[in-house]
Simulated scan of single mutants.
Amino acid sequence: MSTTPEPDLGTWPTGRLLAVAARLVEHRWAAVLDGMGLTHAGLIALHTLRDGPLPQRTLAQRCQVTDQTISRTLDRLAKAGYVTRTPDPADARRHVTQLTDHGRAVHERAVRAEPAVLGDLGEDDAFRAGLLQVIARLSAADRDQPVT
């Protein structure tokens, strides 16, 4: 019986390494968040709302998702009791979304769960700085690209 040798990850292109690392982290997060009744998108929304209520469109922009995506995410979060949506007093066509106490508690629980997902990497300042640099560089490059 022949066995397939382990791949030499050192030979992989950086983009592939990033994609595999992201997939591994996302799968771990999904399992942890599922136990809290959250999705990754829901966690991002809760995190974005932690500093105060936001109009739904602003929330979508800050989460970098479409209005439709944030609407579906907020529907699930509202059903779970994590957020409330109320008409915007300045414009009744818009809604303002805010965390409930239950939503704030589950967000804090998710933040505390990060070590179970990332281990020591979540506390490695140099690793985090490198990730922030990758995101900033790629985001800047994307903004500089002409729309075709």
Rank of each mutant, 00 (worst) to 15 (best):
L46M: 09
W29H: 03
L49D: 01
A41W: 01
L43P: 02
L49N: 07
V20G: 09
A45R: 00
T39H: 08
L43V: 13
I44H: 07
A19N: 11
P55H: 04
E26Q: 11
A31Y: 00
A21Q: 14
M36H: 06
H27R: 15
L46R: 03
R57V: 12
M36A: 05
A21C: 13
L54K: 12
P53T: 02
L38Y: 05
I44A: 13
L43Q: 06
I44N: 09
G42L: 03
G52S: 07
R28I: 03
A21N: 13
H40E: 10
L18A: 14
V20I: 15
A41T: 10
V32W: 09
D34T: 15
H47C: 01
G42R: 01
T39W: 04
T48L: 02
D51A: 15
A19P: 01
H47R: 10
P53L: 00
V32H: 03
A22Y: 06
A31R: 14
E26W: 02
I44P: 00
L46S: 06
I44V: 15
R23S: 12
R23H: 11
H47V: 05
P55M: 04
W29L: 15
H47W: 07
L49C: 09
I44W: 02
G52R: 05
L46C: 07
R57L: 09
L18I: 14
I44Q: 11
R57I: 07
G37D: 10
L33C: 08
A45T: 06
M36Y: 08
I44L: 15
R28Y: 03
W29S: 02
D34P: 01
G52W: 06
H27V: 09
A41C: 03
A31L: 11
R50M: 08
V25T: 13
L38A: 07
G52C: 05
L18F: 09
H27N: 11
P55E: 15
P53R: 08
V25A: 15
M36C: 05
A60R: 04
P55S: 08
L59Q: 02
I44K: 08
L49P: 08
G35T: 03
H40C: 04
A31N: 08
R57E: 02
G42Y: 04
E26I: 06
A41Y: 03
H47I: 00
L33I: 08
R28D: 04
V25Q: 12
R57N: 00
V20P: 10
A30R: 14
P53M: 01
R50P: 08
V20K: 10
